[in-house]
Simulated assay, not measured.
Amino acid sequence: MEESSQIVHLTISPQEWQCIVPTGKTLLEASLAAGIRLPSSCRNGTCRACMCQLIEGKIRYRIEWPGLSAEEKQASWILPCVAEAEGAVVIRAPLAVKV
Rank of each mutant, 00 (worst) to 15 (best):
R37L: 09
M51N: 02
P39H: 08
E71Y: 04
G24I: 13
L32S: 02
I78V: 13
P94T: 11
Y61S: 11
R43G: 00
K73C: 05
A70E: 15
A70F: 14
V90C: 08
S69Q: 08
R60E: 11
L79M: 13
I20C: 01
L38M: 08
V97Q: 06
E64G: 00
T23F: 12
R43V: 06
R48V: 14
C81M: 10
I36M: 12
Y61I: 08
A75L: 12
G35V: 11
R48Q: 14
P22R: 04
P39N: 04
S13G: 06
G67Q: 13
T11N: 04
T11W: 04
T23A: 08
Q15F: 11
L79F: 08
Q18P: 00
T23W: 05
A88I: 09
E29V: 09
A83R: 02
T11Q: 12
R60H: 04
A34T: 06
C47K: 01
V90F: 02
L28K: 02
L54I: 11
S41A: 12
C19W: 10
G24H: 03
L54D: 03
G67V: 15
G45F: 15
A88M: 10
I63Y: 06
S41M: 10
G57E: 12
K58H: 14
V82A: 01
Y61N: 05
C19D: 04
R43D: 02
Q15R: 05
A96E: 08
L95S: 05
P66R: 10
W17N: 03
S76M: 14
R92H: 14
K73F: 13
C50D: 13
A49G: 00
E71A: 10
R60K: 10
P39T: 10
E72Y: 11
Q53S: 09
C47D: 08
K58D: 14
I91C: 02
A96T: 08
C52N: 06
R43N: 04
V89D: 06
Q18T: 15
C52Q: 07
C50V: 13
T26V: 07
E86C: 12
L95Q: 11
P80D: 07
P39K: 07
V82F: 03
A34I: 09
S69L: 15
C52H: 03
K58T: 15
L95T: 03
Q18I: 11
C50Y: 10
C19S: 05
E64Y: 03
S41P: 00
I91V: 12
K58I: 15
L38V: 06
R37K: 06
K98R: 15
E64T: 11
P80L: 14
G67W: 15
I91L: 04
S76N: 15
A33H: 07
S76P: 00
A75P: 00
A49S: 09
G24E: 03
P22E: 14
I12A: 02
P14F: 13
M51H: 03
T26C: 03
L27K: 00
C47M: 12
E64D: 10
L79G: 01
Q74E: 15
R92A: 11
A96Y: 10
V21W: 01
P94S: 08
Q53W: 12
I59E: 01
L28N: 01
I36W: 08
P66C: 12
S13N: 11
A30F: 08
E56T: 09
Q15D: 04
C50G: 02
C50N: 04
V89I: 15
I20Y: 00
I78A: 02
A88W: 09
L54G: 05
Q15V: 08
R48S: 10
Q53G: 02
S31W: 09
E29D: 09
A96I: 15
E16C: 09
